[in-house]
Amino acid sequence: MCRGGDCGTVVSVQTSTTPAVHATQLSKVYGSGSSSDVKVIALDDVTVDFPRERFTAIMGPSGSGKSTLLHCLAGLDKPTSGQVYVGGTETSSLSDARLTALRRDRVGFVFQAFNLLPTLTAWENIVLPLDLAGRRPDQAFADRIIDGIGLRHRLGHKPSQLSGGQQQRVACARALITKPEVVFADEPTGALDSKSSADVLGFLRRSVDELGQTVVMVTHEPTAAAYADRVLFFADGRVVGELTEPTADRVLDRMKDLEKVDA
């Protein structure tokens, strides 16, 4: 039996050519089967790859299913059909305990806001996934991350004593501390001002460039998407376009085009 934080790391075969995350024919349907009026198709047969050491942004209008995609990829939600591979491990068939271990050891998360535990200090929040796994942090790596977020002097503070931007940088550090296969960020700058947003996005960018991380970020801000290597455009539960080496302007143009098509 696999209990609590005692589960071993989910073993997988990985080679440099396998993508960090890979989804095939992913569908997610809300509402019960028979009557088609109450059915909502959030994901419609999505097949997508997220290569290693790349920063991918997912954009789309609200209700397009981009957050659902992120949740299914991250093992927070179960797809109705299709497979998700995280670093070569198929996740949709895992038990809750194994899925929990996968999230803890091989996936990092950054949510929109308010996702630090108020009773823990910044440092304790950062090392929480390791703590849950019963592991000790790699001090050299932890130092790099902490210097990266620039909050060394505030590690002993509780979240309530930190600004929103600082909290979100702590959350980013928490996502990276386990050296995960992939970091999923769901509108990480949604609740932040532009200066704090730039800090957070800059840190995510550097984690890809300097630490070799893989980041998948859902956003609706073209300026945020411009930090990515690649932008996937999402509408009605499907990938409807892609842009590499984006700039804010190009992303905005593409969004306008999509809305035209939509209308």
Partner: peptide, 11 residues
Amino acid sequence: VLRAVGASRPL
């Protein structure tokens, strides 16, 4: 959040 970052149900 705890569950998301990897806390199991028994924990």
